[in-house]
């Protein structure tokens, strides 16, 4: 790895101050499982002068119950998210999503915050510098999106215009279905945004001097049922080809409320609002489920090589709903 300076931050304020003193030439490291890959392959033209360790900030690693639900610090390891009994019980789709990430060793290192903030996995974007040079593209600020004419088997099937890379984070999909809110702290103070507002087509809304400092998840309504399904070619290691998280409240056999969120289909997590609307107020049966899946994918515009993702996503939606309704 090319050289950088390493600095340990002991508090959020200090981390922010450190970023500022480095004028955008510094980056944060949490578990490092994503960042070190980015740095080793030198995929970006800019290389940081300093890496700021935030694992040493004590107040960012916790799972706490409060009146509104659960507060999870962004430095919480994915393994701890998976193992936490309350998350397993009341926020099962998050627990399942975290368990579906990568491999056991990575989950021992990777943090929830890092999972949300990780960089895209588009294979053009990630092409290593040392086998002929990195590939530039729209997302890197130079040239067109390479995936449009290239091999886009894993790219977006909806919601993309300039960059067709999909949101790689599994936990983001579950947290969106759980209606999580993120707390962001920067030199300008603290702001709270919903999970879906956090993601943008080219990444997230974090300003260079901002950190993710908390993840607040409200309790799902009483009786709500959850599901998280992820489709990959292989169980471990793989990023999602498609995923679905859903939180659905049923009352007397009728769907009262629904949040269905799709992963790996678009640059951001996608709430399938049409699908949600199509099932609310209805009793669950095969036809309703079928309609919901069709509604969710009605706006899909697959690229040359990824129409299969539309089919798979439909199937995942159906299976998620079926598992909840049964």
């Amino acid at each position: 790895m090319k050289a950088f300076k390493h600095i340990t931050a002991n508090s959020v304020e200090e981390a922010i101050a450190l970023i500022r003193t480095h004028n955008g030439k510094a980056c944060l490291i949490a578990g490092g499982t994503d960042l070190l890959g980015v740095l080793k392959d030198e995929i970006l033209p800019d290389y940081p002068a300093a890496v700021i360790n935030i694992k040493t900030i004590p107040e960012l690693d916790h799972i706490k119950k409060n009146n509104d639900g659960l507060k999870i610090g962004p430095l919480t390891k994915l393994a701890d998210v998976v193992a936490h009994p309350l998350i397993k019980k009341r926020f099962s789709c998050l627990s399942q999503a975290a368990a579906a990430v990568a491999t056991p060793e990575i989950r021992n290192m990777a943090t929830l915050g890092g999972n949300l903030c990780q960089d895209t996995r588009c294979w053009y974007y990630r092409y290593p510098q040392h086998v002929g040079g990195r590939i530039m593209c729209h997302r890197k600020g130079k040239g067109p999106c390479q995936a449009v004419k290239g091999d886009n088997r894993y790219h977006a099937i909806m919601g993309a215009k300039v960059c067709f890379a999909v949101c790689p984070s599994d936990t983001a999909i579950a947290l969106s279905a759980l209606d999580a809110e993120l707390e962001i702290t920067g030199s300008q103070g603290v702001r709270n945004v919903s999970l879906n507002e956090f993601f943008t087509t080219l990444g997230n809304i974090l300003k260079p001097d901002e950190l993710l400092t908390n993840i607040q998840i409200p309790y799902p309504p009483k009786g709500a049922k959850q599901a998280f399904l992820k489709f990959t070619l292989r169980k471990p290691v793989d990023f999602a080809i498609a995923s679905v998280a859903s939180v659905i409240t049923m009352q007397d056999g009728i769907c009262k409320a629904a949040r269905i969120v799709l992963g790996a289909v678009a640059p951001t997590p996608v709430r399938a609002t049409d699908a949600e609307a199509s099932i609310i107020g209805k009793a669950a049966d095969g036809v309703v489920i079928e309609e919901a899946a069709e509604a969710a994918m009605a706006g899909a515009k697959p690229m040359r090589m990824n129409a299969y993702k539309v089919e798979i996503t439909k199937t995942l939606i159906k299976r998620a709903l079926l598992s909840i309704f049964q």
Binding site: W123, Y124, Y127, P128, V131, G132, I135, Q146, K149, G150, D151
Partner: peptide
């Protein structure tokens, strides 16, 4: 996976 436009091996 070989990119048919640029000749890059994409899954290195």
């Amino acid at each position: 996976v070989l990119d048919g436009n640029s000749g890059h091996m994409l899954n290195l």
